[in-house]
Nucleic acid binder design. Structure first.
Lengths: 259, 259
DNA sequence: TCAAGACATGACGAATAGTCAGTTAGGAGC
DNA sequence: GCTCCTAACTGACTATTCGTCATGTCTTGA
């Protein structure tokens, strides 16, 4: 961030439209930051962490390297900014999904559809998130950005936890005393994350015997919720059909794209 | 690999014990390779991909850098060798687990215990695997090592697929026509991988509301298998107790350590 | 003992992250 | 329209580190 232009906290959601009461300078800064991230995202998508090259970013946005370092303290900050964009995008998709009026398990399936749509529409987001999780880049980044990321993660979790609570209240789900609502969400999170990572990183998935990772994921997730006896059970409701429809109707457009 | 000493294919399982019919030279090479990997593993554990430093490896094993490059074509090959060790270790643990004589779902729980023991005993293995999955290092590595890795993954999968087939044969599990045995394994793999990644990379897990990731993972995995109606159901068998016992009795010692 | 090949060495080239002294541009004051 | 001033921009430079290769050293067999 430029030090003396009193920018808002480092969210990287940058709106390119004019903003009232903003100097030309401030707008330039905002737009340039967006361009840096846009170029960076492409590079990461192509070549991962090593593909992200400060000199190349500089030449592509036609500013000098020093200018980039006025926006981001180092390479890792750029990665974390990209990750924050990703998490923010997903959070908005989840919140839109969770707001649908339907039985709790159907709402949950809608969130599942959002999760599917997220990786399909924004594969670079997913990839960046993986890189940040694996590489030891946390130490080099600013606490503000880290906190932003954690808060995003917590809110994402909370969105789903709320559905579990609603299900308990509605009597559509009953939990053993020893099992917390958060643990159910942990299970869903695990299975989605794991399946998507395998699908993206395991070479020759169909050699292993998996034709469609998405459909397998749906089956397994359904089996888990059936195990919890969350009504309506998968025999009584066509969740795959619902998910396909929701994905087409609500998550089709790029309305959730970060910029 | 040293080019002209006709070493076996590049498995990195190096046994330090004397081998019959081996020249002193060959043994030196073998031992040195093991030391390189051992030092490398520590560095990766400390600082991830960026923590792995060829010069530092050289100084620590007290050989020159050029010598390291006679063993491994580049940095990525070292990482992949470490990953192969990891996968190999896990495979041996899985095969030991799957061989136990018990009802199929209990055998599966034993494999689950092996998976838990693996990450607990060899956290560096797990970390290295994550790094290799996330970073784009595949292009730089030799096809032999990649094939070795894929074969390890396939055999790991096959070990569990076999249990599903046995369950079907024994009538302890019935699958819908549209669901393949491999898909069940994909579900288990997903949930374990996802949960372990979250547990290792999500800062402040208990802030999110998860006290014990292991116990939550067990619950969710059990719910999934209950959803499949794989007998004996979790109400009729104390799987957590079994897993704890197996972990203590069979996977306690470092008998599966790679070297 | 010596020749020849195998192996080890570390200085070097190349790539790239991050810095900073110097330059530029644009707004304020007159 | 001129001058001054400062924020912002620039790119040459340093530091780090991967990977190479010409050179040196050791081993082996005759």
């Amino acid at each position: 961030m430029i030090a003396n232009t009193s920018t808002p906290p480092p969210t990287t959601r940058v709106d390119l439209a004019e903003r009232p009461g903003e100097t030309r300078k401030q707008r330039e800064v905002r737009v340039r930051e967006a361009r840096i991230l846009s170029v960076a995202r492409e590079q990461v998508l192509e070549g991962g962490y090593l593909g992200l090259n400060m000199d190349r970013i500089a030449s592509e946005i036609e500013y000098s390297k020093g200018t980039i370092y006025q926006h981001f303290r180092n390479k890792e900050e750029i990665l974390l900014a990209l990750t924050n964009d990703a998490l923010d995008t997903r959070l908005r998709m989840f919140e839109a999904a969770a707001g649908h009026v339907a039985p709790t398990r159907v709402r949950l399936a809608t969130v599942g559809a959002a999760a599917e749509a997220f990786v399909e529409q924004f594969p670079y987001h997913f990839k960046v998130e993986q890189i940040v999780r694996a590489a030891s880049i946390w130490e080099k980044t600013s606490p503000e950005r880290r906190r932003l990321m954690e808060s995003c993660e917590r809110r994402c979790m909370a969105t789903v936890v709320r559905i579990v609570h609603d299900a308990l209240a509605a009597g559509e789900l009953t939990l053993d005393d020893r099992v917390q609502p958060e643990e159910v969400v942990f299970g869903l999170w695990s299975i989605y994350l794991g399946a998507q990572i395998i699908a993206h990183t395991s070479h020759a998935l169909n050699e292993i015997g998996i034709e469609s990772a998405v459909s397998s994921l749906r089956t397994n997730q359904s089996m888990m919720l059936d195990g919890y006896r969350w009504a309506p059970m998968s025999d009584d409701y066509d969740y795959p059909f619902h998910m396909d429809r929701v994905k087409q109707q609500c998550f089709r457009h790029e309305q959730f794209a970060p910029r």
